[in-house]
Structures are given as C-alpha cells and as structure tokens.
C-alpha cells in the first residue's frame, strides 16, 4: 500500500484539525471524522491519523459519498497514514 502523494513538506495548506485515530479500528476513525469535520471552517483541512488499513480505503470513499474532498494520504514514519480531507460544505 502506498500513499497517494509524497510527503507534504511545504504543502499548500496545513491541517486546521488533527484527529488521532491511531490504534482505532474502522469504522471508529470515520465516525470521529464525521463528528469533527463540522468544527473546522469551510475549505479547511482535517488530518486523520489512522493505522487500520480499512481507513486508508474508507476515508477517501467516505469523502466521495459525502461530497468532501480527499486531498491526499501521507505515510507516517512509524506506521499508518495522515489522511487529509477538505471540508466542502
């Protein structure tokens, strides 16, 4: 499994909120994301830190279903990913 982009050193937008879902199994990371995405302003980024392989597939799929934007998924140095989502509405 590879990240969809290289590490975001100097990427355009840094996350307004980081959700630590490391060690949590799906669907918990997505439940946390769905609850907390409304706490950030429109067009802001939420980063979900997750290491359940299901989250890697399911967060982009959730974005497609809920019309939010999956920006990218970056591999974390230890394990898991930082999955960036932009609030669209």
């Amino acid at each position: 499994m590879t990240s969809s982009q290289a590490n975001p050193a100097g990427s355009a937008q840094s996350p307004a909120l980081t959700i630590d879902a490391l060690g949590k199994k799906c669907p918990i990371p997505i439940i946390m994301l769905a609850e907390q995405i409304n706490y950030v302003p429109l067009n802001a980024i939420v980063a979900v830190l997750a290491d359940d392989p299901a989250a890697f597939t399911d967060i982009p799929a959730w974005c497609r279903l809920k019309s939010h934007h999956h920006v990218a998924s970056y591999e974390l140095p230890e394990r898991g990913w930082s999955i960036h989502v932009r609030r669209n509405y």
Binding site: C26, P27, I30, P53, A54, T57, D58, P60, A61, W62, R64, L65
Partner: peptide
C-alpha cells in the same frame, strides 16, 4: 479488508 473492495475504492466497513 477485502482486496476486491480496496481495489474498487468503495467503503469496506
């Protein structure tokens, strides 16, 4: 998760 659902990019949970 199932490699089929992963490859399709659909919800796996």
């Amino acid at each position: 998760p199932s490699h089929v659902l992963e490859a399709m990019g659909v919800l796996t949970h």
